[in-house]
Structures are given as C-alpha cells and as structure tokens.
C-alpha cells in the first residue's frame, strides 16, 4: 500500500471519539505536527483488539510535535519536541502555511 503522507508533511492528529480500543492518546488529538518518518504498516488496533484479522494493514508514522504546541504552559525551551507513532487513519493533511 502507498503511504498517504511523506516525511516533512504537516499533519493534524484527528480529534474524534472512538469507543473501541485505540492507540491515539488524548493529549495529541487535534494537534499539528510533522511527519518525521514513515514506519511499517500494521493492522488497525481498533479491530485487532477484538479479533485476529485486523484487515488491511495501515501505515504507521512517527509524528514530531513541538512541546509548546502540545502544552500552552510548557515550561522549557521552544525547541523541545515530542515524537509519537500515529496510524494513518488518525492523521489528516494540513495545508502548508505559505
């Protein structure tokens, strides 16, 4: 399968309710970052949590976010970052600002 995003793309972590098991923690939902790395593909946790066939694998990305974008009161330098693995079906494209 072809990954929808490339390294350097700006992406927003989808902020949606999901009643099933999933691996997108609340603190990154709705936040904007940049694709740092395109990783492997894996079945969706939302399905694999309940049965062994997770359906078509989905690409996992490492997304880099700025700490000051995650926490408005972040107590540290502006260059501090956080990286987290997010499945493709939890990412939305963000138009470049320029």
């Amino acid at each position: 399968m072809t990954p929808a995003f490339r390294v350097g793309d700006r992406v927003r972590v989808d902020d949606r309710y999901e009643p099933r098991h999933h691996r997108t923690p609340a603190y990154v939902k709705g936040k904007v970052g940049e694709v740092e790395r395109v990783c492997l593909a894996h079945g969706r946790p939302e399905i694999l949590a309940y049965r062994n066939d997770g359906g078509p694998p989905r690409t996992v990305y490492r997304v880099r976010l700025r700490q000051c974008d995650l926490w408005p009161d972040y107590n540290g330098p502006a260059h501090d970052t956080l990286e987290i693995e997010i499945f493709e079906h939890w990412l939305r494209p963000v138009e470049a600002r320029n």
Binding site: H21, R23, G43, P45, L48, A49, Y50, R51, N52, G54
Partner: peptide, 15 residues
C-alpha cells in the same frame, strides 16, 4: 499459542 493474536488484545483486556 495465538490465544492473544496481537498486543492490542492484552491491552484491551486491561483497559
């Protein structure tokens, strides 16, 4: 033994 088919299944049971 494929009783847990994926780490998601152990985690789901914990959650």
């Amino acid at each position: 033994e494929k009783i847990f088919g994926d780490a998601a299944q152990l985690r789901e049971g914990i959650e």
